[in-house]
Design a protein around this nucleic acid. Structure first.
Lengths: 123, 123
DNA sequence: TCCTTGTATCGATTGATGTCTATATGGCGG
DNA sequence: CCGCCATATAGACATCAATCGATACAAGGA
């Protein structure tokens, strides 16, 4: 029987921007783990490397050499990103590819974006 | 022609979106602490309470009762937010007010926003 | 001056996190 | 089937972070 999928959920953006109304405790508990997954320099760079790579995906073999860290450490960080639902994971032959989930980043960005104040308003 | 982004000087957002090009190690070291400061349910709610409060500011005395945590713990979390540059701090008489810095949140949102995707960012 | 109220700091404790080495797993080629 | 390569997991260790009670500091009022 096939292994159960890990935690890649719909990632529905749960809430309106932080600045429009207070987050509930539950909402905060939902969102914080996403931010925590990103709140590490190595994982930020991993996410960035993956997301900016061609087709929004990258092989582990592309990522590991970018750091002066052991291979298990990189694998660990990728697992954290994956468990948070920020990246998808696919095995193709010997290699494993991680793919960014733009909607995940997008929902976080929306949360942080000031309510009325869109990024750039042209008068 | 595109106006310059309303860059928040003290906190100048260091980088273009994650998805447009890889973050340097230095950029990642700069941004990660901001995310880490937000990556806690209590601090997320604090930030949200402050930002959504009238005038974007709130007294500690308004914030503490919203949690079932000791006053020193709330004070600690506020300090973390302040040290990260996410909120300003001002004493008025007996009370201390914390004020959200929308530019800080905005720069994070810009970082997370997919390059080509929706929002109005101007590169 | 002393007391009271609001907020910050200190020190301790407990649990989480990043990193490593060693080892396991999964696929491919011979 | 065997051995090699790429990646994941396990276990250990050191550091960090969240929380608390106790206490210090700051400001205003008696």
């Amino acid at each position: 029987m096939p292994k159960l999928l890990p935690v890649a959920e719909p990632l529905s953006l749960c809430c309106s921007p932080l600045t429009s109304q207070p987050l509930s405790a539950e909402q905060a508990e939902t969102v914080a783990p996403l931010l925590k997954a990103l709140a590490d320099p190595v994982r930020l760079r991993l996410m960035s490397l993956i997301a900016s790579h061609a087709d929004g995906e990258a092989c582990v073999c592309d990522l590991t050499p970018a750091f002066e860290l052991s291979q298990p450490t990189i694998s660990h960080h990728l697992k954290v990103l994956h468990d948070a639902g920020l990246v998808d994971r696919e095995r193709r032959g010997t290699w494993v590819y991680y793919r960014a989930r733009p909607q995940a980043l997008q929902s976080l960005a929306t949360l942080l974006t000031a309510a009325g104040a869109t990024p750039v308003t042209i008068p």
